[in-house]
Design a protein around this nucleic acid. Sequence first.
RNA 1: GGCGACGUGGCCGAGCGGACUAAGGCGGGGGACUGCAAAUCCCCUUAUCGGCGGUUCGAAUCCGCCCGUCGCCUCCA
Length: 492
Amino acid sequence: MSLKIYNTLTGKVEEFVPLNPPKVLIYTCGVTVYDDSHVGHGRSLIVFDTFRRFLEHLGYEVKFVRNFTDVDDKIINRAKEECTDFMSIANRYIASYYRDMEAIRVRPADVEPRVTEHIQEIIEVIQRLIEKGYAYESDGDVYFSVSSFKDYGKLSKRSPEEMEAGARVEPSEKKRDPLDFALWKASKAGEPAWDSPWGKGRPGWHTECVAMVFKHLGETIDIHGGGLDLVFPHHENEIAQAEAITGRPFARYWMHNGLVTVGGQKMSKSLGNYVTLKEIYTRYHPDVLRLLVLFTHYRSPLDFSWEKMEEAKRAYERLKGAVEDYELLKKLEVVEDRSGGTHPLYDKVKEMEENFFGALSDDFNTPEALSHIFSLVTELGRIKNRAYREGRITSSDLEAYRFASESLHSTLRKIFGLLEDLYHECEVRRVVERELEPGDVRSSELIDLLVEVRAMARREKQYKIADYIRDRLKEIGIELEDTPAGTRWRKV
RNA sequence: GGCGACGUGGCCGAGCGGACUAAGGCGGGGGACUGCAAAUCCCCUUAUCGGCGGUUCGAAUCCGCCCGUCGCCUCCA
């Protein structure tokens, strides 16, 4: 089955053919570390993390690089506000980023380069551009000459003439042309600075990605990804620099995820309408966010709301329940049945897997893939329903359930990064909520005790007492569920 | 102003020329199960796809115009 993905460069869905299979080289633009990451960053991170997992599943040897921009205006400004140096700001938010990624289960990239560790490589890229006549020095700055690169605008589909007409470009006496962009900026007093052939300064934003790609991946990579808002000017400028130097395609496929909006407007720092990842995972299991992201096609806009988080949470609980309920079903009385023949569920599993991977192969259609997941979840529910009615389960139903739920779990975990901590949830949640719930272990024993007492009351048909216990537990966030195999409880 | 995207049931959201009598999720109603709940299942809510006009044997899917929403053009995932 061939993989098809939409390529921003051509504007078409194309068959994905890596340059040197089975290797696949991917680069995505990471975050600028001057503040906590929000849901907008999270979406992009989750999308590409999931896509990478899918490529690995297909048998590709993926080398994945995602950078940190650890020196730029915003970091410097933040440092000034706090009367500290830019490096401690960067380090603080890199640490914060790693906490977030661990919580939302975005795997680290194979290489996570930092700009400040690649100054020499950046300078070399700039020097090569000057040598080839694509860049010029001007009073300690270095600019890329947009008019010297004929393909400029091919990614964002706009021509330099149109942009001039738009006339919203930054004016500067140092630039020969208003469209030219900075590769190197002479540093002002008190700002971080590195020695260069053009004097003390620091790199402009657009060069770092080119230098890092060249160093860690090579001159042509398979996939370059990032948020839709990076298409212009950032990615356009990357292409200009890289292809001016090599004369060869920089990235064969450009993938851009749609933006996260709030009430229809882009989630961003400047609008102040952002929700940090930390807010998300202190209120919800991190899988809920992953599910929310995967419920929308990666190229469509995703309008964030807490209502949607609630919806995703319900869906998440259904998924989780389908996988977990095997533990419950096997506690029921199992009746042997030798009716023979294969259980119909095995075919359903096969069908689900084929449809699931088929959907992902068609421009990474995660919503459709999830629809196939849920059709299997419904099949599992049918078995549960039958078992609950009869108070027992046939051995073939139980075995089929085990097979199907394991297959479901393994697919969700490996590809979507969901339900990774199913059987260790208490521990993982305690890590996440460490400060919030120090006494969790003790209270779980107490809850077990109350559940026991309630069971006794029920046996005596003392329903008022039994219901009182259940209602009071619910008030403190513990929900009880009576099953043919006994009562279980969960936090809500 | 320039360039681009989007508008599908109560809400969200796939589908992008013929198996669409339009996936899936969430919500609401009814039923099965339950001491009552919860979980699970079944049924209903549930669609002619922003509007108008074209192309085609055939359009939610292609083209044109209009209306509406958003993005990029300045740092942004």
